[in-house]
Amino acid sequence: MFWKIVGGLIVAWVAFMVLGAVIGFLFKAVLWIAIIAGAVFLGTAAYGAISGKKNTKQVGR
């Protein structure tokens, strides 16, 4: 009976280790994707602001 409990604890520990590794990898991947997307967004916004239209027509009434 003692060895069944120890075996169950070891199996649970290994399962949590694998689950933690997978969740950690996914979190890091999503974090890097968000960082890259933010940099691309800021670059695009800066490019649009710098090379925007110089022709600023006002709408007549």
Results as ranks from 00 to 15, higher is better:
residue 23 I to W: 05
residue 7 G to R: 07
residue 37 A to F: 09
residue 14 V to S: 06
residue 29 A to G: 00
residue 24 G to N: 04
residue 39 A to I: 15
residue 28 K to R: 12
residue 1 M to F: 00
residue 7 G to W: 01
residue 24 G to K: 00
residue 56 T to R: 11
residue 53 K to M: 04
residue 35 I to N: 08
residue 15 A to E: 04
residue 51 S to G: 02
residue 47 Y to A: 06
residue 6 V to F: 13
residue 32 W to Q: 14
residue 45 A to Q: 12
residue 26 L to C: 06
residue 55 N to I: 11
residue 11 V to C: 04
residue 7 G to Q: 12
residue 28 K to W: 05
residue 17 M to G: 10
residue 46 A to V: 15
residue 29 A to F: 01
residue 24 G to Y: 00
residue 5 I to M: 03
residue 12 A to W: 02
residue 23 I to H: 09
residue 2 F to T: 12
residue 27 F to K: 11
residue 45 A to V: 14
residue 33 I to M: 08
residue 18 V to E: 03
residue 48 G to P: 00
residue 30 V to E: 09
residue 28 K to M: 07
residue 43 G to P: 00
residue 37 A to V: 15
residue 24 G to P: 00
residue 7 G to M: 03
residue 36 I to S: 07
residue 41 F to W: 07
residue 45 A to C: 12
residue 12 A to V: 03
residue 46 A to L: 14
residue 35 I to W: 06
residue 25 F to R: 14
residue 47 Y to T: 05
residue 9 L to E: 05
residue 34 A to P: 00
residue 28 K to L: 15
residue 21 A to I: 08
residue 34 A to F: 07
residue 23 I to Y: 09
residue 28 K to V: 10
residue 27 F to E: 02
residue 45 A to M: 14
residue 42 L to D: 04
residue 36 I to Q: 04
residue 51 S to W: 13
residue 23 I to M: 11
residue 9 L to R: 05
residue 13 W to Y: 09
residue 13 W to E: 03
residue 48 G to D: 08
residue 26 L to A: 14
residue 1 M to L: 07
residue 50 I to Q: 07
residue 17 M to H: 05
residue 53 K to W: 00
residue 5 I to T: 12
residue 48 G to M: 03
residue 57 K to C: 06
residue 61 R to A: 09
residue 37 A to Y: 08
residue 28 K to Y: 11
residue 29 A to I: 04
residue 18 V to S: 05
residue 48 G to E: 02
residue 25 F to Q: 07
residue 37 A to N: 14
residue 27 F to N: 07
residue 38 G to E: 08
residue 46 A to Y: 10
residue 16 F to G: 09
residue 59 V to A: 15
residue 58 Q to D: 04
residue 6 V to A: 14
residue 19 L to F: 06
residue 31 L to S: 15
residue 3 W to S: 12
residue 52 G to M: 01
residue 18 V to I: 15
residue 3 W to G: 06
residue 58 Q to G: 00
residue 24 G to E: 01
residue 44 T to G: 07
residue 22 V to L: 14
residue 36 I to H: 10
residue 32 W to K: 11
residue 32 W to G: 01
residue 38 G to A: 11
